[in-house]
Amino acid sequence: MLIKKREDQVKGAWRYIFLLSIFSLIIVIPYAWLVARAFTTNTGEFTLSNWSFMWKETPYFRGLVLPVVWKSFGLSLLFASGTAILMLALTIPTAYAISRTKFPGRPLLTKLMIILDAFPTVALLIGFFYVLNAFGLMNSYFGVILIKVGMSLPGTIWLMKSFFDHVPWELEWAAIVDGATRFKTFTKIIIPVVKPGAAVILINSFLSGWGEYILLNLFIIGKSTTMSTFIGMTLNNEGKIAVPFGILAAASLLYVIPVVILFSISQKTLLSVQQGGIKN
């Protein structure tokens, strides 16, 4: 009886695994294709020559030369880290203030944040030109970080607020009674407690910065050499791509792998703490 039940269960599981496998083909095939093409020639033989951009400048089309990729890789890393750190630095104090303090205009500010979060970013692009110009930040990665962070802040603050909402008040009370000021309570007690939430924000912002394309393409005019623009420039002439497919597949893979690694390391944290910005 017991054994039979177990068999039933296993069989049932395979049914679902099969169903989901079919459904997942739509993702698996394109990605598998990408991996396969990164290591093969157009005619299907195995090769590592697609990866030559990792160690030397690679000529690819009528005398055009692909630069060594590491500069782009490093630049993307820098851009993503900068975005993540600035995002966190601005999100944490603001989210704490909205979650834990009372001030005139708090409901209004919160509503404004939600409206801003729902704001179509494309509508901001024109204005960015003027603002960046005014500060002399045109063609500067720092300028792009600033507008990127500015655009995504409302959403991240709202998410971070929900982490602060869950910190027990007793911790804050204890620290105040122990003689700490509110600021010290915030920095010494509350921030360490919301570390998992901060990690979520940090990882999300890093990923978003790592993948950023359009802002870099628009505001670092023709000069951006991050990973995204490295790959993106080849997409710009209406599908007629001059860079050989194998090389592009390899470059894309190099661009995706850090994301997958970062996600695999952090997936436990992400899944356990990410309850979404708005709870019921």
């Binding site: 027990p168 007793e170 360490p192």
Partner: peptide, 8 residues
């Protein structure tokens, strides 16, 4: 405090 509120 009831929950002791030790700083974790």
């Amino acid at each position: 405090f009831q929950s002791y509120a030790l700083y974790p």
